[in-house]
């Protein structure tokens, strides 16, 4: 008995669907830099610093935080606003952590409105002070200062007003 070609194709497609469903969920860092923390809190100790494009395997999720595992096996928490969730591509041939992406952060890294476009815009607008913008971006309030500010003001976890 000859199996009809379309049945064969359909069966193949279904198999791929099942494989994809069984795949690990990979999250990719989409911001310049962030940390994996010991607990799902911003003031929890940072275990490792990550940069845009770094890939992690998702373990679980809780209140906007994702528990992840790094490629070196380190387990910790990262806030969901820092990552893009994607699926592991089982069909990719080059490397186990290769992810597939459509119009995703990973696929778009460095593209579109990028430094090249900003430089071109800057060259047409010498009156704009980008050095001031750079200075503004360099100022980052350290997390221990934020924590001290909250504690002093009886805010956040230190608040007892409500």
């Amino acid at each position: 008995m000859k199996i009809p070609k379309r049945t064969f194709v359909l069966f193949g497609a279904l198999l791929i669907v099942l494989l994809a469903m069984a795949a690990d969920t990979v999250v990719v860092v989409k911001i310049q830099t962030t940390s994996i923390r010991q607990n799902p809190q911003f003031f929890a100790p940072a275990l490792v610093t990550l940069k845009a494009g770094d890939k992690l395997t998702k373990i679980s999720e809780s209140n906007g935080w994702i528990q992840v595992k790094t490629q070196t096996g380190l387990v910790g928490w990262i806030h969901s606003s820092a990552v893009e969730v994607t699926k592991l591509n089982l069909l990719a041939s080059n490397g186990p952590m290769k992810t597939q992406a459509k119009a995703s952060e990973v696929a778009l890294a460095g593209k579109g409105f990028n430094k090249q476009v900003e430089d071109s815009y800057k060259s047409k607008h010498a009156e704009l002070n980008f050095a001031l913008v750079d200075r503004m971006l360099q100022v980052k309030v350290a997390s221990n200062l934020i924590e001290a500010f909250l504690r002093q003001g009886r805010l956040g976890d230190f608040g007892g007003g409500r």
Binding site: A13, I16, V17, A20, M21, T86, K87, N89, L91, A92, Q100, A101, K102, S104
Partner: peptide, 9 residues
Amino acid sequence: LLLASGCSV
């Protein structure tokens, strides 16, 4: 296929 994945698949 689309349901399960992205474009490379």
